[in-house]
Nucleic acid binder design. Structure first.
Length: 463
DNA sequence: ATCGGCTCGCGCAA
DNA sequence: TGCGCGAAGCCGAT
């Protein structure tokens, strides 16, 4: 059962509390307030933290942030864990400066959070929003295992996902008008996070970060990426560089994989090390040409939040059963089609196909942790073309995406793959083998759009 | 280089 | 009920 906030909270600060909802309402209990941080791993511009601070301050109670480190989360490797933990180390330090305690727990949230709540006599738990099945399941388990209220705040989206639309949207054009209207209310500035006056009783204990990262029981076969520095500071530095140099060429160069035309912010956005709302505000404020600003905002706001809408309202977001009816039908009709090339997941993973362009894209992802956005479409569509079934194609794409991309396990990834393979948010096109009416992409199409040879050269295997 | 057809269904106007 | 149009294209004709 979901409730919106009561009148007293709503009156206090609409811009903060309007982004929250009760996941379980168990009355006001005395005791400190804990923000269970999960998706939004930052101190600045964080609506969930601001909300937790507000209710703690009102009750004159101590405030803490608690993060629970789950071993083997959806097949994440040291590449993603390292990026996340190095960012969290910075977050913990920044919180200390604000006089807010930080706790790092290890284990499944349905155990660790209730134990923490009991031990510290926490009065209210605030958490951030995430549409992924496992995250929603965690929250449900936690809310039934604690005797105090659990309140969710959408700190990731500009418009809270459950308010942007009350249903799964068919396409961007059905979502856009709703968003544009809601942005009038929600695209606001952020209040400052002041030093917190009520200290946490007792020490929260030092966290041995380096040892933790070394000893993590996860796949160490996919190395951390050197070129992209994790954390809130690095995220803001990247944003600043992009605003100064990249934004003014964004519209024309973002779809050219041989250029660095994209913002480079997706890993930071994925881990919540920077707020999309902050990026939007800065972009709107920039002196770059209107077409560039609009192109960026379309991706950052409409497409990004549409991905959350898809995963939130379609619990089969990573399966062909989640595809729209017309797409399922046409893929079904082409199930028996002969595949000209067929590869095993291992052949895909080792970039061993006949197509040098596809291999280059796979290589780019495996070595840099970030495949160019345009190539992600081509890459996934070819996996459909060269797999036995759409089910296999989804499984392979998601497995590889989540293993190698710094921004793996994100609604953007699942929705992008579903767009490529299953026509999600897309329309039907000319019928052809294997794809049916799913939009096709080709090597020749790429050749007419960018310098394919250059991209292949750039992403050759180093060995 | 540019253009039209391909093909589906949502959502709004009427 | 009719109609316009859409998240990133392809292909063949001109």
């Amino acid at each position: 059962m979901l409730y919106h906030l009561n009148k007293a909270m709503r009156a206090k600060d609409q811009s903060i509390s309007g982004r929250s909802r009760f996941l379980s309402e168990k009355g006001g209990a005395p005791g400190p307030v804990a923000y269970w941080m999960s998706r939004d791993q930052r101190v600045q511009d964080n609506w969930a933290l601001l909300f937790a601070r507000d209710i703690a301050f009102e009750r004159k109670q101590p405030l803490c942030v608690v993060f629970t480190l789950v071993p083997a989360f959806l097949g994440a490797t040291i590449r993603q864990y390292g990026f996340m933990l190095r960012g969290l180390r910075e977050t913990a330090g920044a919180l200390a400066k604000k006089n807010i305690a930080f706790f790092l727990l290890e284990g499944e949230p349905h155990r660790t959070i209730p134990l923490f709540v009991k031990k510290h006599r926490v009065g209210t738990v605030v958490t951030d929003f995430d549409p992924l099945r496992i995250k929603m399941q965690w929250k449900q388990q936690v809310s039934s295992n604690i005797s105090v209220s659990l309140i969710e705040v959408d700190a990731h989206n500009i418009v809270p996902c459950w308010l942007a639309s009350d249903k799964q949207e068919y396409a961007a054009y059905t979502f856009r008008p709703k968003m544009k209207k809601a942005l009038n209310t929600f695209l606001t500035g952020f209040p400052p996070l002041r030093k917190y006056p009520y200290p946490w009783p007792g020490a929260s204990g030092a966290i041995p970060w380096d040892g933790l990262i070394r000893k993590l029981n996860v796949d160490h076969g996919v190395p951390e990426v050197e070129g992209i520095r994790p954390g809130e500071k690095a995220a803001h530095k990247r944003l600043k560089e992009f605003l100064q140099r990249g934004l003014k060429k964004y519209a024309s160069s973002r779809n050219d994989p041989t250029q660095r035309g994209q913002s480079g912010l997706s890993p930071y956005l994925h881990f919540g090390q920077i707020s999309a709302q902050r990026v939007a505000l800065e972009v709107m404020d920039s002196s770059a040409p209107k077409s560039d600003r609009e192109a960026l905002l379309e991706e950052l706001i409409i497409r990004r939040e549409l991905s959350d809408n898809y995963c939130f309202y379609n619990k089969l977001y990573d399966k062909p059963e989640g595809f729209p009816e017309w797409a399922r039908k046409t893929l079904e009709a082409h199930r028996p089609d002969r595949r000209e090339y067929l590869y095993t997941p291992e052949q895909f993973e080792t970039a061993s196909t006949h197509d040098p362009l596809w291999n280059a894209a796979q290589n780019e992802m495996a070595t840099t942790g970030k495949m160019h956005g345009y190539m992600r479409m081509y890459w996934a569509k070819k996996i459909l073309e060269w797999s036995h079934t759409p089910e296999d194609a989804m499984e392979t794409s998601i497995y590889l995406n989540d293993k190698y991309e710094l921004d793996g396990r994100d609604p953007n990834g699942y929705t992008g793959i579903a767009w490529s393979i299953g026509g999600v948010h897309d329309r039907a096109w000319g019928e052809r083998p294997v794809f049916g009416k799913i939009r096709y992409m080709s090597y020749n199409g790429c050749r007419s759009k960018f310098d394919v040879k250059k991209y292949i050269e750039k992403n050759r295997p180093s060995s």
